[in-house]
Simulated scan of single mutants.
Amino acid sequence: MAVERFLGTRAQRSFMATILVQTVAVLVMVAIVFRLVEDHVDFNASRYKTIPCYLALFALAEIFEILLALDALRLRNVIQLAGILLFHAALIVFAALQIHETKAALTDDACSGDVNCNGVLWRRVEPYLIVAPCIIGVSWLALMFFVRELYYEFGWAIFHVVGANPKMKTMYQFYQVMICLLKFNFFCFAGVSMQMLILVLASSSAEFGITIAAVPIVLFLLVACAIAVQREIKWLMSISLVLMLGAEAYCIYKLIRFYEPSSSWQYLSTRATLTFFTVASFLLLFATFAVGLRCFADFDKGLQYSKVYGSGETSTEGMNMGERQSSYLGGSRMQPRISIE
């Protein structure tokens, strides 16, 4: 049974088309909101920075989702497709939260021009803000249908990597989950950092410097952990797991800062979104730590070659392994091995 080529089936093309159409439609709605508000308020005022940051975050989220979808289809990774569905659901929540936060930003202070402080501007932008989560919700339903088709289409792919051994299959699936979680951790961290740096922190504050310093540390953590789990480097994996615990402690610290009386005033217009991103980051880190421990326990059990050289169809070792696994098919020739991590 041959594996379909990248974007070679109707389900793959429909999946990508749904994401692309949804991306364009949502970004148009957000851009209209940005333009309407820009004509009447000064974005240099701290309370109005919510709007451009909202646009930037949505642009980042949509680009991230497109790249993640292309990566999942290219690698035939069913687990990553499921992760995209969860990410899409989180986008619905994020879009809904922005309705509340934009209203809070626009209805308290007087506006200039022909828009007064009685909520006229808010009533003009409200329909566009409501349409965004509706579009994402409809596209989410369509994506669930296409992911179901892709599940059956890609179900054969993992057999090409690890054969019919149930234990190897389970270990490889945990490895896939780990890599997928690391990718989503990157987005959540980028979202929290962007909001903190643009909306909340003054460039002269100590917390601004801490946030800037955390960026390369977290990026190192994610990259190092991915390399460690793929190549089964125990000392690097140990360091990565310890750093994850530190990152979780940082998330708890930030949540306390959002609500304690001495600092809560800084986060009034962005507290809901920041809380959403920070809680999501904490839960992702916790899940990544737990799955990381499981992957660590699976080191040195014969999976490393499949993780590192899963696409090495021309290598001698890969050919020999394919020949050994062909016994599960009654001696028929295996198709070229592929990587789906």
Rank of each mutant, 00 (worst) to 15 (best):
M144D: 09
W265L: 14
V24C: 07
V291W: 02
R10A: 15
L255M: 12
E260W: 07
Y305V: 12
P133F: 01
S263M: 08
I130P: 00
I227P: 01
V215Q: 08
E207L: 12
S269K: 10
C225R: 07
G292A: 08
A105P: 01
T23E: 11
L36G: 08
F282Y: 05
M178C: 05
L222F: 00
C251F: 00
T316E: 15
F187K: 06
F186V: 02
D298A: 13
M319H: 11
K183S: 09
M194K: 08
K103T: 07
R231M: 13
Q335K: 06
G137M: 07
P52G: 08
F174D: 12
F64R: 00
D109N: 12
S139K: 00
F282E: 14
T288Y: 01
C188N: 04
F6Y: 15
N116L: 14
G113T: 10
T278A: 05
K301H: 11
F186P: 00
E38N: 09
L129V: 01
C251T: 11
E248F: 03
K49T: 15
V41L: 06
T211F: 00
S262M: 15
G318F: 01
S14R: 06
A95T: 05
E323M: 13
F87R: 07
Y267T: 04
L201A: 09
I198C: 12
Y309K: 07
W235P: 08
A61T: 02
A190R: 03
E101N: 03
F276W: 09
F276K: 04
L182E: 05
K254V: 11
Y48G: 03
I130S: 00
I212Y: 04
L129A: 02
G331A: 04
Y328G: 15
V229P: 04
R271I: 15
R124P: 10
A164E: 14
M1D: 10
Y151M: 10
A95Y: 00
A157L: 11
V28K: 11
L57V: 14
L241K: 06
E65R: 05
M168T: 04
F34V: 09
A59L: 10
I227T: 06
M171N: 08
V308E: 14
A280S: 13
L274D: 02
Y151C: 09
I92L: 10
N320F: 03
F186I: 03
E149Q: 08
A110I: 14
V291L: 06
G155F: 01
W122Q: 08
V37N: 13
A31P: 04
K169I: 13
V28P: 08
R35T: 14
F64H: 03
V242N: 03
D42N: 15
V41R: 10
S139F: 01
L97F: 02
G302W: 01
I135D: 10
T314C: 15
Y309T: 06
A82L: 12
C111Q: 13
I84D: 11
T170V: 10
G209L: 11
M144W: 07
V177S: 02
R13K: 12
C111Y: 04
S204A: 12
S332L: 15
R47I: 10
Y152W: 04
N44W: 13
F189D: 05
S269C: 12
D71P: 03
A214W: 03
A59N: 09
F94E: 13
K167S: 12
L55K: 03
Y267F: 05
G318Y: 00
